[in-house]
Computed example of a mutant assay.
Amino acid sequence: MKLLFICTGNTCRSPMAEALAKVILGPEFDVGSAGMSAWEGAPASDYAIKVMEDRGIDLASHCARQVTEELLREADWVIPMTEGHEIRLCAQYPEYVKKIRRLGNWGLSGQDILDPYGGSLQIYQSSADEIEKMIYDLKNKLDNLA
């Protein structure tokens, strides 16, 4: 199964989600990420790298990429970080509406993952904690779909 996590710049939230999902979901999942307004090739933010490093995950080689129609077509699930991303993706790519589902909607929280960009290390840690919890919710739902 192929999952694509989406945020704004593909330097904070979606790379952390991608990295955490690879660990939590395991090798049977093909996991990637992209950004709605990404600068192609930009590295992950320093704090995102640090927060993942503290969890034993290497994010230093991450390169941002822009959302494309091809990425959406290839994904089984497109998982944006916020309702705003979800609405925008559904509007721009109506043919993929059935496979676009915000991360917070895989569990009971329904919440958005707020952008930590420009925030403190503690804000990034909190963001990673929220993402990790929601990835476990995602795992439970995907296990039930199988």
Score class of each variant (00 low, 15 high):
L4W: 08
L4H: 01
L4R: 02
F5C: 06
I6H: 02
T8N: 07
T11K: 06
C12Q: 02
P15A: 10
A19M: 14
A19H: 12
V23A: 11
I24K: 00
D30Q: 10
G35W: 06
G35F: 07
S37F: 14
S37Y: 14
W39H: 14
A42F: 12
P43C: 06
A44I: 01
A44W: 03
S45R: 02
D46R: 11
K50W: 06
K50F: 06
K50Q: 12
E53Q: 12
R55G: 03
R55P: 02
G56K: 04
L59N: 00
A60E: 11
A60S: 15
R65H: 10
Q66D: 05
V67D: 09
E69Q: 12
E69D: 14
E70N: 11
R73N: 13
D76S: 07
P80K: 07
E83L: 09
H85W: 03
I87A: 13
L89N: 01
Q92A: 12
E95G: 11
V97W: 08
V97R: 08
K98D: 10
K98S: 13
K99D: 00
N105G: 05
G107H: 07
I113D: 00
I113R: 04
L114R: 09
P116A: 08
G118H: 12
S120L: 04
L121P: 03
Q122D: 15
Y124I: 00
Q125W: 11
S126P: 03
S127L: 05
S127V: 11
A128H: 00
D129T: 08
E130F: 13
E130A: 15
I135N: 05
L138K: 01
N140Q: 09
K141V: 02
L142F: 01
L142K: 01
